[in-house]
Simulated scan of single mutants.
Amino acid sequence: MRFLDAAEYTADRPWDAVGLAELDTATVRLHWTDQPYVWHVNDDPEVFVVLDGAVDMHYREDGVERVERLTPGRVCLVEPGDAHVARPKPQARVLVVERKGSV
């Protein structure tokens, strides 16, 4: 068994992560960040769960930019093809489940 206090995890650089598990073709990682990611589109689904802090998830729907605030316990499923960028407020720890090899 392995135990980790997500609220205490930090990294050397934004969006760095500690790998927690590989499940078949998916990875489970705990990310820490105090900087936004970049706008991007994934080929596969990805699941975000904010464990500590807050993240404003910016996404485009029908050409319009929208924002949803993710707070601890809030889950976001990003479908393949969804343009999005995560922006921490002011920092966050996020559990991300995604295909192996995703960056």
Rank of each mutant, 00 (worst) to 15 (best):
A86N: 12
D16R: 07
G63T: 10
E68C: 03
P90Y: 10
H58Y: 14
M57K: 05
A83Y: 05
P88M: 02
V49S: 04
D43M: 10
L70K: 01
E98Y: 00
V50C: 05
T10C: 02
V47R: 05
D24I: 02
C76W: 14
E79H: 12
R29C: 09
D62F: 11
D44E: 14
D16E: 15
L95W: 03
P45A: 06
V103I: 06
R93T: 02
V41C: 09
E98S: 10
S102L: 10
P88N: 03
T10R: 05
G101W: 09
D62Y: 11
T10P: 00
V78S: 10
E61F: 05
G101P: 09
D62S: 13
E8Q: 14
R2M: 07
V47E: 08
E46R: 09
F48E: 09
R66T: 04
E65S: 10
W39A: 05
E8G: 06
P72D: 09
A11Q: 13
V75S: 08
N42D: 15
S102T: 15
Y9F: 15
T33G: 07
H31C: 02
H84S: 05
A11F: 09
T27L: 09
K100P: 01
R60C: 02
R66Y: 05
D62K: 13
G101L: 11
A6G: 06
L95S: 07
R99I: 06
G63H: 09
H31D: 00
D62H: 14
V78G: 03
H40C: 00
D52F: 06
E98T: 04
T27D: 13
V96Y: 01
A17R: 09
T27A: 14
N42G: 12
G81R: 01
D56P: 01
V49T: 14
L51P: 11
A86C: 14
D24C: 05
L51S: 11
A26P: 00
V94F: 00
H31L: 11
V47L: 15
R66L: 12
L95R: 08
L95V: 07
V96P: 04
D52G: 02
R87H: 10
E79M: 12
V78P: 00
G101A: 11
P36R: 13
T33R: 04
A11V: 06
V96S: 03
D34G: 13
T71H: 03
D43H: 15
A7W: 00
F3P: 00
P80V: 04
P36E: 12
E22L: 04
V38M: 08
R99M: 12
W32V: 00
R2S: 12
V64T: 15
G19K: 13
A83K: 04
G53N: 11
T33D: 04
V64I: 14
V50R: 00
A11W: 07
D62C: 06
R87Q: 10
V67R: 08
R60K: 12
G19W: 05
W39L: 06
A11C: 12
D44H: 15
V38L: 10
R60N: 03
E65Y: 10
D56A: 01
H58S: 07
K89N: 13
L4A: 01
R60L: 11
A86T: 12
A54C: 02
R66F: 07
